[in-house]
Design a protein around this nucleic acid. Structure first.
Lengths: 157, 157
DNA sequence: CCGCAATATGACGCTCACGGAAAAGTGTGT
DNA sequence: ACACACTTTTCCGTGAGCGTCATATTGCGG
């Protein structure tokens, strides 16, 4: 468990909570009842964290997403065993629908984030230009005070 | 107020809460005590919402961000009035530092979102390829059943 | 001036996502 | 076999972010 905490950055309490909320299928246990996590389950925990912090999903939304993933896995499974091309086609279309939903959410967020990003970077560019200009002004006005322009500006005492 | 609700998508309660938490400087009031919002304050409310849903900031973090913005505004103000290039330089550097912090956060999030996006879109591409292939297989196997491949696949009753 | 919807101010409640302590059991190096 | 740290379950607690009354004003058309 300690290793899981180290590898996921989650607390044991949070992990148990996720299991309680049905985000994890009840994990394997030792004879005594200690939880054992497979690599796949650790990956799933990381996925949960990612969806939480990166996309800002609630645990309920994450649960849906994970269930969609599971559905996708089942579809893949069914796809492997299906010999009928028509059935396979239906499965593919289901999977496509799921993926499209996800990509739509992501793109929406990306678009808005990009807008924000551009704003801030333009602001930075303007600041940088001003900075350069001021350095030139200083160089003109006080040709003796050169270099070391970075850091705090200190007033005379 | 109703107009504010309409324009921001926030509830009156939320707005009051933001004010209570110090995210808004106490707004102007009518003689009777009804709140009056300027366009700038409405913009700030929208900003709060954006930072919340898009970047997943807590109200505390949003407060910091807004204070940073205010600081930036003050810096601009001070910049206008400062005649000393050295002082101006210091102000510019402060503003730059604030903007850099923001851009770092945004870029980090963008990078991870982009990764997620690529994954899903590759998955979509594979699905699409499979879909095409299956359509070809069906065309070969049953040359009589053509067209209208989209929608649900129906089993024989 | 009246009536009535809109708003203000508490105060309490609620959901989400855990945190933390207690009591009991487990794994493990020596 | 022991010591001792690690886990488990249970249950209560917490903080954020509002929702929801209740009650009191306020604004405003008629």
């Amino acid at each position: 468990m300690e290793e899981i905490v180290r590898r996921t950055g989650l607390t044991p309490r949070a992990i148990r909570y996720y299991e309680e909320m049905g985000l994890l299928s009840p994990s394997g246990r030792t004879a005594g009842g200690f939880r054992l996590f497979t690599d796949a389950e650790i990956a799933q925990l990381l996925r949960i964290k990612e969806l939480q912090t990166l996309l800002g999903f609630s645990l309920a939304e994450i649960k849906e997403t994970l269930q969609a993933d599971a559905a996708r896995a089942e579809i893949r499974q069914a796809y492997q065993q299906a010999t009928d091309p028509a059935t396979r086609l239906g499965l593919i279309e289901q999977a496509t629908s799921l993926a499209q939903t996800r990509v739509r959410i992501i793109n929406e967020r990306m678009a808005r984030l990009t807008k924000l990003q551009e704003e801030v970077e333009q602001s930075l560019a303007r600041l940088s230009a001003r900075h350069e200009q001021l350095l030139r002004e200083l160089a003109e006005q006080q040709p003796n005070d050169n270099g070391q322009a970075h850091g705090q500006v200190r007033e005379k005492p």
